[in-house]
Design a protein around this nucleic acid. Structure first.
Lengths: 69, 69
DNA sequence: ACTTTACGTAAAGTATACTTTACATTATAT
DNA sequence: ATATAATGTAAAGTATACTTTACGTAAAGT
């Protein structure tokens, strides 16, 4: 599972800190997400999609043919 | 956050056990999800949406005006 | 009567999402 | 030169998703 968080964050001209605040998570969480270190909860994924005004599937890319997702 | 897992499972005529197998999770996980006891991981949410051939947002309903999600 | 199937609960264990703190690096500004 | 802002790493701690086992119940089949 890949994601476009970093790209979208830059499009919206936000720092990691600012995005973390909007999402009510720590900056570490943003870093880990951007680096693809884990698989967020659905609620966090949803909040992210709302910040970027799009659908979950527009932020997170689940490539068929599975590396687990 | 509500979800339509139980409804969709019945539409697809699956038992909890069968759905659990398809998703590669335990039956307990299905029960807990149907009962709304927790907030799944994004990957699990995605797999569920694939089983039911729809989008994540069609399975999980995030009512605006937040009880967290 | 009894067995089987489907659903449910409870409780303890494991894996992992997410936090917190502390420190390093690079770029920009003064 | 040094201060500040933004990004990154590492490691230990907490919360919670998910598993496993064991047991209870109600309905349907034989």
């Amino acid at each position: 599972m890949r994601n476009r968080i970093k790209d979208l964050r830059l499009v919206y001209d936000l720092t990691q800190d600012e995005l973390a605040e909007k999402l009510e998570v720590s900056r570490q969480t943003i870093i880990s997400l951007e680096k693809g270190r884990y698989n967020p909860s659905l609620i966090l994924a949803y909040k992210i999609s709302r910040v970027f005004m799009c659908r979950i599937e527009d932020v997170f890319i689940f490539e068929e043919g599975n590396e687990n997702g």
